[in-house]
């Protein structure tokens, strides 16, 4: 590739110019609306900037104070733990159930399109509304929707969102319910790349359905699954809306997530500096993890 492009350097120049033009709008917008605001956050994270300071209080540099506070604040540390725990529940579930579901609806059966549509439908319900619906389902009352259902199975009523061990998994279930259809479809599109012949060959070799799944489907989906993995990890680490609308971080901060914590720091307590420091720490942490993960993946 490198050789051939060297040969036609005139063409390459045209290509570079075109690439530059194609990139410009997105790059400019990203610079103005993502990179610049984030750079401001980095600067503010070393200050005590407030959203609306009391008259007479000046913004000043405070060094690493905000960063030190992140590690000394029990709640903020917990918010990081909660966020990763949430991702730990969401990511494998979406990946595994999404793949199984995709295979399940990848059959040439009459009417299967309708079911694909239905499975996808929660995706079009906005998260605020999802939260409202599930608040009713997760009613802690013994005559609540889910509790009544469990009652039929002779399972004792649960307190769901009011139970500090169940609240976070409940939020995860909401997200999985909403998001699974989308990931299912993306995986489904990946399935189309796997050649039918591989399955036929396996059939002749006497492979079971499960073996086919493990040895053909999963490796064939590698690229798709990597994309799903990355996008679900990133999205689930940013969990905010359900917390904001439903639990307000409770009970006992069991659902306080990083983004919710930095929102609260900024908008409720007015501490823009501290809020920025949480954002920067979160960014660095996820960056480091993904770099490490990349390294390990390459060594494999």
């Amino acid at each position: 590739m490198a050789n051939s492009s060297k040969k036609k350097s005139g063409l390459q120049r045209g290509e570079s110019k075109a690439a530059f033009l194609f990139c410009t709008p997105a790059v400019v917008l990203a610079l103005v609306f993502i990179i610049l605001p984030f750079a401001m956050s980095v600067v503010y994270s070393f200050t005590n900037k407030q959203l609306i300071p009391k008259v007479g209080i000046e913004t000043a540099f405070v060094g690493l104070k905000n960063y030190i506070e992140i590690f000394t604040s029990k709640v903020t540390v917990l918010s990081f733990k909660n966020t990763f725990l949430y991702a730990l529940i969401v990511v494998p579930s979406v990946l595994v159930i999404g793949t199984v579901l995709a295979v399940f609806v990848n059959q040439k059966i009459k009417g299967v399109q309708v079911f694909r549509l239905i499975y996808f439908s929660p995706q079009v319900v906005t998260m605020t509304v999802v939260a409202v619906i599930w608040a009713f389902i997760f009613s802690s009352n013994s005559s609540g929707l889910l509790n009544s259902f469990l009652g039929l199975l002779h399972i004792a009523p649960q307190k769901w969102l009011q139970d500090q061990h169940l609240a976070l998994p409940c939020l995860a279930i909401m997200y999985i319910w909403q998001n699974l259809g989308m990931q299912m479809l993306i995986i489904l599109s990946g399935l189309q790349y796997i050649s039918e012949e591989l399955y036929e060959a396996a059939e002749i070799d006497g492979c079971t359905t499960f073996e086919k799944f493990i040895y053909i489907t999963v490796p064939g989906l590698k690229n798709t699954l990597v994309y799903v993995l990355v996008s679900v990890i990133i999205n689930s680490l940013k969990v905010f809306t359900q917390v904001y609308v439903l639990t307000n971080g409770g009970p006992s901060n069991a659902t306080t997530t990083v983004v919710f914590q930095l929102y609260k720091a900024g908008f409720v307590n007015g501490q823009v500096g501290y809020s920025s420091a949480i954002a920067v720490t979160f960014f660095m942490l996820v960056m480091v993890i993904s770099i490490l993960q990349n390294k390990f993946a390459k060594e494999d």
């Binding site: 610049l36 750079a39 401001m40 600067v43 503010y44 900037k49 008259v55 000046e58 913004t59």
Partner: peptide, 20 residues
């Protein structure tokens, strides 16, 4: 970027004194 954001930081400080 640093210059711009510093400027933004600075201007907001002057903003605060202005309102004062």
């Amino acid at each position: 970027m640093m210059v711009v954001s510093l400027a933004a930081c600075g201007s907001s400080e002057t903003g605060a004194t202005a309102t004062e």
